[in-house]
């Protein structure tokens, strides 16, 4: 019943339909894990500086998918809230990374990551 004075409600759950089974969650988690692994492989194999950063974005994306899936399974909004912050960090990372890439490109006139091998220390 609705009681606007005391502010207590008993209502259907907001925004979400009924609960999701763990077997369904598994499928989304598999897609997310496979996407993460592909991003990792891409980060290790590509030699283009920009594409290496693009592969980290792919890994962000995989993490976001699993957070949304877990939030759906637990029927709360924390997962979606975290994805908002993942998007924020991704935007900040893109700005910084691209500024760095432009800086590095000016020095060597190339995007080859191997040209910076002396940085390995």
């Amino acid at each position: 019943m609705i009681d606007l004075i005391s502010g207590t409600f008993s209502l259907a759950q907001a925004g979400y339909p009924e609960a999701m089974a763990a077997s369904t969650l598994n499928q989304y988690l598999f897609v997310s894990a496979a996407m993460f692994a592909l991003g990792l492989i891409g980060f290790m194999t590509r030699r283009n500086l920009i594409l290496m950063f693009l592969c980290t974005e792919l890994m962000f994306q995989a993490a976001g998918l699993s957070m949304i899936a877990f939030g759906r399974y637990h029927m709360n909004f924390d997962g979606q809230t975290f994805v908002i912050f993942v998007l924020t960090i991704a935007a900040a990372e893109a700005a910084m990374a691209l500024a760095l890439v432009v800086l590095l490109f000016r020095k060597r006139e190339s995007l080859d990551a191997d040209l910076w091998a002396e940085l390995k220390g």
């Binding site: 894990a33 496979a34 993460f36 692994a37 592909l38 990792l40 492989i41 290790m44 194999t45 590509r46 030699r47 283009n48 594409l51 190339s110 995007l111 080859d112 990551a113 191997d114």
Partner: peptide, 24 residues
């Protein structure tokens, strides 16, 4: 560009990635 046309260590990277996937 040569650095785009040739992957670096594809076998090792794929092995590492898919071992990670199997564990995950």
């Amino acid at each position: 560009s040569g650095y785009d046309a040739l992957a670096r260590e594809p076998v090792a990277a794929a092995a590492a990635g898919f071992v990670l996937l199997a564990l995950l």
